[in-house]
Amino acid sequence: MTSTLSGRGANTRPARPARRRGAAVGLLFIAPAFIGLLALYLIPLVRTVVLSLMETGPFGGGKFTGLSNYEALLGDEAFWHALRNSAIYTAIVLIGIPLAILVSALINNARRGRAIYRVLYFLPVVTLPVAVGMVWRYIYNGDFGLLNQFLGLFGIDGPSWVADPQVAIFAVAIVGIWMTLGTNIIILGAGMQGIPEELMEASSLDGAGPVRQFFGITLPLLSPSIFFVSVLSVISSLQMFDLIYVMIGRGSPALDGSKTIVFLFYQKAFIENDQGFGAAIAIVLLMIIMAATAIQFRLQRRWVFYG
């Protein structure tokens, strides 16, 4: 590595035209990806930033008002409320990660039927979230739902799961866990299969039982996968919208207690026609997600083990 670097430094001059041509070809090669990125992410991002500094009408136009949308946002009780709901939702969905580790360890140790279990757990991932939401809405129905009929067998009078402000966000988060479990199991399962067999063998020769092996070998060696899964889960949970929209919806008494930050964005930008304010929400959410991810990357140094 070092020798190539010093070699390059020595013959800089003659190599230049060739390198420039090489750079042009390189640019050409990344152009398709870059143009896509530019058109679909970077330009909209810049536009959103600009929009967030404007007071807009429902059909475009508007005037620059500086940071007034952000000021209004930070002073808006509804924003803090939605932020709290999103945080609660994210925290609950993170509980799904230990669950996914447990399930994938069980699948990994299964003698037969691994593929069947993987498919079963993965099915919710490839199912349309709207369809999932509709089905769970029926299951959660307070009067006629399957869940309450089941609880009724034990004499428990269950609540209106998705209409009761006290429980709705938990009920939705459980569906969220169920929906992401499949992806997490696949990623963690792959991580587990990458753990060298001889480590396991050596440890069992030394007299370690399965539990000791799990905590002493599997978990530390799996930590990069766990880290990856948790970063993805936090991002997708903070972006949660569709389940709330389908399972709770506008006009439900439970909406206020479960309205996530993206739902608030939808409401402000598309129902109340305040696109500038909506853009400000989107930018703040972007910053929150970046901060949450940065914090996770910082913390990983303490617990992720890259063997």
């Binding site: 959660y140 129905n141 307070g142 009067d143 006629f144 739902g145 609540p159 209106s160 998705v162 209409a163 009761d164 006009g251 439900s252 008494p253 439970a254």
Partner: peptide, 10 residues
């Protein structure tokens, strides 16, 4: 009448 919660469910 059914409660608001019941009417939100059905």
């Amino acid at each position: 009448s059914p409660t608001l919660k019941q009417l939100a469910d059905t």
